[in-house]
Design a binder for these strands. Structure first.
Lengths: 223, 223
DNA sequence: GTACACTTACTTACCGATAGGTCAGAGTCT
DNA sequence: AGACTCTGACCTATCGGTAAGTAAGTGTAC
């Protein structure tokens, strides 16, 4: 009612992005087709091409939106008060949220498929990691200042280690369908950054509430 | 001359595995086709189906051979004397060797594509990680005994953190085409496991010999 | 030792399904 | 009328996989 849209007020383009994003994060960029999106949205493949001329263009839009949202989430972490260490935990929590949906980080997935991606997508993936890294560098330096974090290597190397460690924790935990696995790995990872005599970093998986590993059949639907 | 083979003494099946392995580690299981292998070996696609009835069967054989070789490498690390810490460094070195070829760990790549894999391949991927984890657990416990390693969490959680951290370091470093990035992340990762007042873990990248990042064009050929 | 049966390791030709993509036009809104 | 959004029909290329055939080697009987 707010506007004259026929279909949905959500906007077809953004609904396409929603579906495509989920598919990439679940099956990879080479693991789905325009037909899959069209079927799910019950529109024609040609309609997809109207909104996104090519799959490569869709991919670019996908990364752009994902990165913009992710950076917005990081900016919102910056406004909340608390130690750098707390922000680092929240950062890991962002990854956990994605994994809870049975999904991989969009850019982590695309990093695996990097060699098969068109150049503009490659650049965007690199850009995403660069932005994460520089945000983390900032947090790490603040953590060194406020005493909530302690690390021997440079802030840059440590930031790279954190990005890599969290991406890898998602990558490996997802096949097991076990978020506790991610939490344990992440906690163990960040434990190396905590001054001695401090409480554990990321909340360790509570055996009472943690979902048990669903080894044969993880969350998301296969194909 | 040793036998009556016409083609090559290497054996067609193993040459198929060689090419397929490289393709999976570079482009992913969904990123190459039987035609790619056939073209490279200059044989027909049907010949591939003679040796491996389906792509799924090829994938299973691929993981089996990769895992068997990897475990053999781990066993050989066990025979060499030295601290647990040294074996941990060598373990990270195995990953580095793969990355130097511009490749991802086979099972790390397949973990990303997990949702699209046939069930037997899924089981094999899980098995690979389980084997790595238990080998690492062993090393970690020995390291605690011989005093060369120190970690707060359980050996199991720490082992999972190491697998995840190294896989993630490969995943992220590869798009940058920069092995130094991997080395820095791995060193920073393992630094958390080293008793205070000890030399750094994995040899940090030497600025003199390290290859510079090849941002626009990494090593392997695109498609 | 040579004829015959059988196996191995392929090839050529082809299949139906699906991939990403194009194009002319129809329906709807302002 | 014109812009916007979308459909149906269609295109070519490629996907994994199959059927039938063949050249060369192996094993066995006589």
């Amino acid at each position: 009612m707010t506007n004259g849209r026929i279909r949905d007020e959500a906007g077809t383009a953004s609904r396409i992005l929603d579906v495509a994003e989920r598919l990439v994060q679940t099956c990879g960029f080479n693991g789905f087709s325009y037909a899959d999106i069209a079927a799910e949205l019950q529109i024609s493949k040609a309609a997809l091409h109207y909104h996104f001329a090519s799959k490569a263009a869709l991919g670019e839009a996908l990364i752009a939106r994902y990165a913009s949202r992710f950076m917005a989430a990081l900016a919102s972490l910056d406004t909340a008060d608390g130690t750098a260490r707390a922000r680092l935990d929240s950062y890991a929590g962002l990854y956990l949220q994605v994994l809870r949906n049975g999904q991989m980080c969009l850019c982590g997935m695309l990093a695996a498929e990097y060699q098969t991606l068109p150049q503009p997508m490659r650049n965007a993936v690199i850009g995403f990691f660069d932005q994460n890294e520089s945000w983390l560098e900032n947090v790490l330096e603040q953590g060194r200042a406020d005493g909530s974090l302690r690390y021997a290597a440079s802030a840059q190397d440590t930031a790279r280690m954190i990005v890599a460690g969290l991406e890898g924790s998602m990558l490996v935990a997802r096949p097991y369908g076990d978020t506790a696995r991610f939490q344990a790995a992440a906690a163990s990872l960040l434990a190396g950054l905590v001054p001695p005599g401090s409480e554990p970093a990321l909340s360790s998986p509570d055996p009472a509430t943690a979902q048990p590993p669903s080894h044969p059949a993880p969350a998301a639907a296969g194909r």
